[in-house]
């Protein structure tokens, strides 16, 4: 249950009400192999989220093609899951009902839906909070519930848009490890959008670096570190620092800080 993803010469131009055009992404191409976790990093406003919205089918690129398993994307499709910095849990639903949300468009009995949601919550160690409401949970627990909702539909591809950036440092570490394990177990293809260079290196198989607006690919290299399921162990390896330095240099952060 996993698919490859290909972005081929994507350009996205937005036109505002007054008729001004903004090119968010220009002639951008990269591939994600089946089961691979690719991190996309870049300066803020470089169109990272635009890419995600095009892959999820929320809107079409102005030119170029998005291919999932060789098939062009037209509109939203059920095998793509997505997750944002905001947990997007519905406050009026209990946690288990939130997890069931994505299954409600699928043909299955109420009992099966509940069973699948509970299995997913058990995997996230949230089973005892199934009947709680989102406001009763901590930020880290809510984000785990959001991952449960994303994975319960058994997606082939999941798109993560800065899912850890709103969390405190400690929760972030715990959750990164949790996500890395869960995603590896599920074996899904994953695109992780992040502005955290360290996070990109410790979680990904490969990193795609984007330039400022209009966004385009300026670097694309594999991360050859062991233990993809343990970001914490990876962060302690000396080579991890080398990769972060490479990202740092590619993005010209030194010049910006000066």
């Amino acid at each position: 249950m996993t698919s490859s993803l290909e972005l081929s010469q994507i350009t996205k131009v937005f036109t505002d009400k007054v008729g001004n055009t903004i090119t968010a992404v220009q002639d951008m191409s990269f591939n994600v192999a089946a089961g691979e976790l690719v991190a996309v990093v870049g300066p803020s406003g470089c169109g990272k989220s635009t890419i995600l919205n095009m892959v999820s089918g929320l809107y079409a690129p102005t030119s170029g093609r998005v291919l999932i398993e060789g098939e062009e994307v037209h509109g939203t499709r059920p095998e793509v899951g997505f997750m944002l910095q905001k947990d997007l849990l519905l406050p009026w639903r209990s946690i288990v009902k939130n997890v069931e949300f994505g299954l409600e468009e699928k043909k299955m009995s109420r009992a099966e839906r509940r069973e699948r949601a509970m299995t997913e919550l058990e995997r996230m160690k949230l089973a005892e909070f199934a009947e709680h409401y989102p406001h009763q949970l901590s930020g880290g627990m809510r984000q785990r519930a959001a991952l449960a909702r994303t994975l319960v539909i058994e997606p082939d591809i999941i798109l993560l848009d800065e899912p850890f950036s709103a969390l405190d440092a400690q929760t972030k570490l715990v959750l990164q490890r949790h996500f890395a394990r869960t995603i590896a177990e599920a074996g899904v293809t994953c695109v992780l959008i992040t502005h955290d260079l360290n996070e990109a290196v410790i979680m990904a198989d490969r990193v795609v670096v984007m330039s400022g607006r209009p966004g385009t690919v300026v670097d694309d290299f594999p991360i050859e570190l062991a233990n993809r399921t343990d970001p914490l162990a990876r962060s302690l390896e000396p080579e991890a620092g080398v990769y972060v330095k490479r990202l740092f240099d590619t993005l010209h952060l030194e010049n910006e800080a000066a």
């Binding site: 919205n53 939203t76 793509v80 409600e104």
Partner: peptide, 22 residues
């Protein structure tokens, strides 16, 4: 929240379902 609506759209929910559930 537009993101909630987008989430429902990614789950292929119809306009009416989005109205009812979001």
């Amino acid at each position: 929240d537009r993101d909630l609506v987008n989430l429902a759209r990614v789950y292929s929910m119809s306009r009416l379902t989005i109205f009812r559930k979001i």
